[in-house]
Computed example of a mutant assay.
Amino acid sequence: MRRNQQSFNKYPYIVLLVIHTIMLLIAFSKTGNRRNTLMLLSSNIALGYYFEYFVVNLFRGYVYKPAVFKNKQFDQIFGAILSQAMFVPFTAVFITIFQLNWKLKWLFSFYFFFIENLFVHLRVYTHNWWRSTYTFLLLPFYFWISDKWYQKLQKGSPLILFFSFYNIILITCVNLLFFRAIRGNVRFGYGKHHTWREHFIIGPLYSIVLTILTAWKMKRNTDFKTWREILWFRVACDFLFIKLKWMKGNLSKIVLNLPYHFLMITISAMILKFVYREEVKIKTD
């Protein structure tokens, strides 16, 4: 019976993924500025990740059960990624691009309220202290933030552009660390024995620290000296985390992490050109 339940669990998530992917594709076909829409999507995802960090990683408000991974912590986080990087953000982008009114925002909020309760009934999702009512009441505010963010992007707000740049780097960093953890390349924790729950508490903080420095330094300059300073800072963070026993491994781990850091710096430079392409053209000319 349990095996049948686990084999069933993934299908409700797949159905939602198909529905919301279609919604996102429709939104992108409608928009006249796909660059700003992509930045909006990334910022909506980042906002969802912040929310999940506190409600799921820290305080265990609810549990996702897509039954994709045998490791319960990986499975839980993968469910969170599906929800906060796809289902909810895709919907928010759809609402913003089509400029849907408050009645429709509340209707979509009720849709997620219904889905959440259905998932509980199907036993593919479990509440601890969280309640579906909280979802229903908070989502319209999330949709409103999405609307305002897009308006500021359209006006070219320097502050919103920078945080959009930061958000794209952050979600890239978090997602890459998740896949590195699956492969056994990185593990965070406290002391000698690192649990996966500890990993998913410390890992996002590690990503935030590295992203803040990377985004700030790259926005100011993109020359070789800047790349070198960012790399040294990342290496110093690894050294500190290993010395404090917050990262599993010895000092050789620093060398093994270098390809990841080079990759993130390279990707960040590409994101900079994407977000600030007008400014980059001016500097090049």
Results as ranks from 00 to 15, higher is better:
residue 248 K to M: 04
residue 54 F to L: 11
residue 119 F to N: 00
residue 187 R to H: 11
residue 216 W to L: 10
residue 264 M to P: 02
residue 259 P to E: 12
residue 53 Y to E: 00
residue 28 F to A: 05
residue 59 F to C: 13
residue 246 W to D: 01
residue 209 V to L: 14
residue 255 V to Q: 12
residue 43 S to C: 12
residue 74 F to I: 03
residue 253 K to F: 09
residue 78 F to H: 01
residue 14 I to D: 01
residue 70 K to Y: 15
residue 267 I to Y: 01
residue 113 F to Y: 15
residue 9 N to P: 05
residue 191 G to P: 01
residue 90 F to S: 02
residue 100 L to R: 08
residue 113 F to A: 02
residue 8 F to I: 08
residue 166 Y to M: 04
residue 117 N to E: 12
residue 141 F to V: 15
residue 155 K to S: 14
residue 247 M to F: 05
residue 61 G to C: 05
residue 105 K to W: 02
residue 259 P to Q: 10
residue 285 D to E: 09
residue 115 I to V: 14
residue 261 H to G: 05
residue 26 I to K: 13
residue 237 C to W: 12
residue 112 F to S: 05
residue 107 L to H: 00
residue 39 M to A: 11
residue 28 F to H: 05
residue 184 G to E: 10
residue 142 Y to P: 03
residue 134 Y to V: 14
residue 264 M to N: 05
residue 211 T to E: 04
residue 24 L to G: 02
residue 113 F to N: 07
residue 55 V to K: 08
residue 282 I to L: 13
residue 86 M to R: 07
residue 130 W to D: 01
residue 174 V to T: 09
residue 240 L to C: 10
residue 236 A to F: 08
residue 165 F to Q: 04
residue 12 P to G: 11
residue 186 V to I: 15
residue 215 A to Q: 04
residue 280 V to R: 12
residue 192 K to F: 07
residue 44 N to P: 03
residue 173 C to R: 03
residue 275 V to Y: 04
residue 44 N to S: 13
residue 195 T to N: 03
residue 215 A to C: 09
residue 31 T to P: 06
residue 253 K to V: 09
residue 133 T to V: 15
residue 57 N to I: 00
residue 63 V to E: 14
residue 21 T to K: 11
residue 132 S to G: 10
residue 114 F to C: 13
residue 253 K to P: 00
residue 255 V to H: 10
residue 51 F to V: 12
residue 70 K to Q: 13
residue 225 K to E: 12
residue 68 V to R: 02
residue 33 N to I: 01
residue 211 T to D: 06
residue 21 T to M: 11
